[in-house]
Write a protein that binds this DNA or RNA. Structure first.
Lengths: 119, 119
DNA sequence: CGGAATCCCGGTGGATACTG
DNA sequence: CAGTATCCACCGGGATTCCG
């Protein structure tokens, strides 16, 4: 069923890679960081302030991972003091749209799901 | 915690609840289990066989969680030996559609993302 | 057969202090 | 300011065994 390309959603490694990629924005902060960047570039500090509760280590790791897979750009301005700006790439914007869909769906069905979990 | 609908991605508890709900199908097996149930009800054993590599404990936990939030039905037939069937609820089918979108998007952009991560 | 109980491990995420 | 370096807590997940 697989071979040449896309819909390789049946194979073992295919699943694994999908999980890897999907886990890119399911690890607590990635999706939120992408969301924050939707309106434009942000500096590290600004990002950290908006995502209240994230430690520098984790935020760094999150952003580096997103950068690694081409979802965000990281630009360093050698100013004093240092300035680093993060922004969405083209594909990152695509992901952000998808994440918005996810959030919207959750929003719409949140009540029903929480009601179910309450019983 | 009002939430002006869709883009209520700014509040603290809103984020938390969304994460909770989103994490429902991002924890490695939930999405795959839902995917397997798309074609119809399955027994515990069948499900475990299809999702090769999942331990009974984890599968149980996964299914219970999905059931708790109203995404799957769990029906026990008091046969001997015991028989338990899992199936998607209405809202679970909605989730499965969403997950398919996610998988499709990842499929389409997988190459580009992996290429980026390769440099 | 469908789990529950137990033990274990690795990774993610967090707090804090420190550096270029 | 933008991180790095530690250290640590907490699950998710896995393997195995036992129970109704």
């Amino acid at each position: 069923m697989n071979s040449t390309c896309a819909t390789s959603v049946g194979t073992a490694e295919g699943e694994a890679r999908q999980r890897t990629l999907v886990s890119l924005f399911t690890n607590k902060w990635s999706a939120l960081a992408i969301g924050e960047l939707e309106d434009g570039p942000l500096r590290f500090g600004a990002l950290q302030r908006r995502l209240r509760g994230v430690s520098p280590k984790v935020l760094t790791h999150t952003l580096r991972r997103l950068e690694e897979f081409g979802l965000v750009n990281r630009v360093v301005y050698p100013d004093i003091p240092l300035r680093v700006e993060y922004s969405l790439t083209e594909i990152g914007r695509g992901a952000s749209g998808l994440l918005r869909d996810l959030r919207n769906w959750v929003d719409e069905n949140m009540d029903e799901m929480l009601r179910a979990s309450d019983r």
